[in-house]
Each structure stands twice: as C-alpha cells, then as structure tokens.
Design a protein around this nucleic acid. Sequence first.
DNA 1: AGACTTGATCACTAACGGAAACCGAAGGAG
DNA 2: CTCCTTCGGTTTCCGTTAGTGATCAAGTCT
Lengths: 151, 151
Amino acid sequence: MQDGTFTSPRHLCETASQRGNAFSADCPTRQILDRIADKWSVLILMILGDGAMRFSGLKRRIDGVSQKMLSQTLRSLERDGLVLRHVEPSVPVSVTYSITPLGQELVASLRSMIDWAETRMSDVLSAQRAYDGRDGASEGGMALQRSAVSA
Amino acid sequence: MQDGTFTSPRHLCETASQRGNAFSADCPTRQILDRIADKWSVLILMILGDGAMRFSGLKRRIDGVSQKMLSQTLRSLERDGLVLRHVEPSVPVSVTYSITPLGQELVASLRSMIDWAETRMSDVLSAQRAYDGRDGASEGGMALQRSAVSA
DNA sequence: AGACTTGATCACTAACGGAAACCGAAGGAG
DNA sequence: CTCCTTCGGTTTCCGTTAGTGATCAAGTCT
C-alpha cells in the first residue's frame, strides 16, 4: 500500500531544466516555498522592501515577533540571498538589514498577497463565522458529513 | 522594561476601517496571513485555481502531502471561504473541492510567488551554497561576527 | 466472507515557536 | 572595581503544532 506513495510522477526538476516544480517533493523549490511561505518572512521582507532597517527597528515594527524568531528568520533570509546583513562596529554593535535585488523581486508578489489579506479580511472573517455556525444546526439528513463519524 | 512591548503603536485595525493591518499582532489579518502563508495551502490553492479536483486527485498531484495534512488544510481553507467542499454520496464517497471567487483572487498573487520561486530557484541555491561556505575560510579580523561566539 | 476503494481520524513523535534568562562588548554610575 | 545599561543576539525550557502510520466506516466487487 505504501508503494503507492512512490508511483506518483516525480515531474522533471533535477533534470537539465533550470526551472523548478513546486509540486514535486524533492525539488528545491519546495524548500524555498516552505521558507518564504512563512508569516515572519513575509512581514520582514515587506518592511525591508521599503528600506533598510536595524534589528531593533524590525522588532518594534513587527508587533509580536520574538527575538529568537526575528534573528532566526533574518538568518534564513540572509542565507537564501534575500536580505543583506551589515554589521557596524560602533559603540554598542549596530546591525542593519537591507533587501537584495533578488528579494525585491519577491516582495512585489508578497505585497499583493498582503494587500489581498488586508482588503478581504472581513470576507474571510464572515466566512469563518458562517462555517463555525453551520454545525449542530437544523441539518437532519446529512449522514455522510463529518459529524456522522465524530462519535 | 517589558512595558516597551506595549508602547509600540497598535496601528488602527479593530477601528471603523474595513482594512486590516498585518503588522499589528491583534489584527485578524495576522491570523489570515499565517493561514495562507503555508506550504500546503499555497499548493492546494494553486491546483484548485486550475479547476476542481477530488481529494485523491489532490493527494496524487501534491507530492509528499499526507492525508491528515491535506484534509486538515482543506478544512481550514473551506472555513476561510477559499474553497468549496462538495460531497457526492456515490458508491465510495466522492468529495470534490473547488475554489471560490474569493480564493481565485488570492491565487493570482500566489501564482506570481510560486513563479518567482521556480524561476529563481537556482539563484537561491547558489546563495545558500555561498553562505554555507563563507564560515571558517580566510576571514581573520571579524571579531564581531557570529563565529566569535560559536565556541 | 474477504479484499478493495475513498475520505477522515487516532496515537504518537519530531519539530516549531514563545518567554525569559544569559552572553559579550563597551560605556557610565557609584 | 563592581554593578548596571544598551544592542544584538543565543540558549534553555516547555507547550503547541506539524507530520507519519495505522485505523476506521461505508459500500462494492469477487
């Protein structure tokens, strides 16, 4: 039965083509997707897309991020070539982060994603309320629904 | 000192404005961002953006996803009003998932994000290789670098 | 009856994420 | 000199979550 896991087409990815395929599990694109499809990465890139900023500035701007996640995410983004880290050996060390051209390309897509989330927020919220209120109501004949198995 | 955490501007969000602000921790947009900034959500929405598909079809198409994560992610997306779930009480139950107009809007942004990831994959990979090889090389005077504390 | 299909769920483990402590260098107060 | 502070982190502890494999329920075919 588990053999079925491997019968799916591996798609072409590690072949000569320079283009990745996010749907194939072993394609590096999948790792990259997992990295950039991250709450903190998106917010950091969005901010740095508007200009360089110091560590403490990012922490102040991104409400609710912990030092650990901020430095960890910044290091990932630096490793991926999306942000630059500049250390100023001043009195107390001052570290400035900026975005690379490669990262700037990505920011454009992310911006439209955030824009969608901010404008459609209320639609999503009402959909959630509708979904949460649908269960246990006047539905009587749906034997194959999720509620039928929950016992 | 910890009071500083709360001195940051809460931005306007739960006010009269219908528009969210992803940078404020208590704005619903943040939750929505966390939901859609997810590997599996992105891949599912991308596929459903091309047309409806059954559970097993999605599982076959998205290489490496488990049944649990697939049904779990699909239910989240359904709750958020991004996908529709249609149960066909046929011989073995057949469940078809399709995208909503709201979800279709989002797919456009996601597509450009994936497109970036697939085309820039090699750039990111070479940046990663450069970053991983930078440590322990001919750097002699960088006392404030990360390597100084790693001992 | 036994095996198989489809979609969902359970038990369990590995990894993630947050709070807070600690660090290391430099500067100032007492 | 010792204590305390700032900046940019790292480490530790621990709860939550993601992820895997096995299982389940219903129904059909052999």
